[in-house]
Write a protein that binds this DNA or RNA. Structure first.
Lengths: 208, 208
DNA sequence: CTGCTTTTTTACCATTTGGTAAAGTGACGA
DNA sequence: TCGTCACTTTACCAAATGGTAAAAAAGCAG
């Protein structure tokens, strides 16, 4: 069992904890804005309020920071889907999921863009995580939705493309914010409008 | 009037034309895969089969290549939307638009990722184009769709979010291909399935 | 206080990368 | 065949960037 920390085993002092958190926060800011290659250790250092060598005291390198960040956020990212309840009302569960994803776009746009960047580049540092983290969850929920459709509780369609369309439409507002904001300038209620629109949209596809 | 070309005015020899095209093609490949900062002139040079200084003989620099590329592709990118016909059948026109966008994702995924990269980073080299190229067209079509809705030819909803959702869902298959392919491994008919699903989806929102 | 460990800084380094100067090569008309 | 102009290559350079070594400073247990 190797550790990411420079200290061999889990010896996390208060300073250790505080600075590692600072670095991860700074890295989220910088990586999500510039992508992996576009981000520099100097930028992360400045954002974190630490010197570059000091950052390398806490992490083994640029890539280690990025991987740690991705790992840390993976659970948060999958959480809304994991919360989809097999025992709940099918329509409520899926619309609820869509709304939770929308909240993610609204509250965590940096996290959204971080993942978007990584996937766009072909997921070079996240391939394994897609297989081991996302895929099983995806398949579980696809099967769940399929069973709801088979039971006639939802209109039949391809559950995989349904999930893709939820991801696409909700993440769009975070990932393509630069474009959305140009095209909706002056509208203070873009997110509420989007939520209302998507609610109607998915309700119409899903209602039996 | 300044020109991008090293030759002051429009003196485009055969070699000039051929090599500029090679460079643009190579740049599309490299920029779409690695993003602006991630791409290097050496990569573009190798892909183009030319030396780096030779590339700089044809273009003023990395940024000039990127800007030229973006400009060249802008029209192609907006074309499907521009083709939406005010005199056509509303439902056919919008679904037709969606299908044309889907074709773009299928046939020009690199172009899609190029734009996605640029927007994700906040459109630093495309801001003006969004304002001058995309925005007027967007607003024209929003007004058109709104008038169709006002006339009762389509179910009422927010035309802006409708267009966003078409962009999001169709481009998803190109931009997040790395993720889609992991989750649909073995399925040879992802695109046809997506098209059928999206056809149903938008038909249900749009039908009055 | 004291000695030891953890943390931070200073001073570097090697590589990569965008870019340039200038010499060389080739095509083509007079 | 020669001169000119368009194109290409060779040999560089300065800045940026990821990373390191080692000294200095700060914590902290006794």
């Amino acid at each position: 069992m190797t550790s990411y920390s420079p200290v061999p085993e889990k010896k996390h002092s208060r300073i250790q904890l505080r600075n590692r958190k600072r670095i991860i926060d700074a890295a989220l800011e910088v990586f999500s804005q510039h992508g992996y290659r576009g981000a520099t250790l100097d930028q992360i250092a400045e954002q974190a309020g630490l010197s570059k060598p000091n950052i390398l005291y806490y992490f083994d390198g640029k890539e280690a920071i990025h991987v740690t960040l991705l790992n840390k956020l993976m659970e948060t990212w999958l959480d809304p889907l994991a919360k989809m309840d097999p025992d709940g009302d099918p329509l409520d569960e899926i619309l609820g999921y869509m709304h939770r994803k929308m909240q993610m776009s609204r509250k965590f746009p940096r996290e959204s863009r971080l993942f978007a960047n990584e996937i766009l580049q072909g997921a070079p540092r996240m391939g394994p995580h897609l297989e081991s983290g996302l895929k099983p969850l995806f398949e579980e929920k696809v099967a769940l939705i399929q069973s709801w459709m088979d039971d006639g509780k939802l209109a039949a369609s391809d559950p995989r493309h349904l999930i893709f369309s939820i991801w696409a439409t909700t993440q769009h507002y975070a990932d393509f914010e630069a474009q959305v904001s140009v095209l909706t300038k002056g509208d203070k209620a873009v997110f509420p409008g989007a939520e209302a629109y998507l609610d109607t949209l998915f309700r119409k596809v899903l209602e039996p």
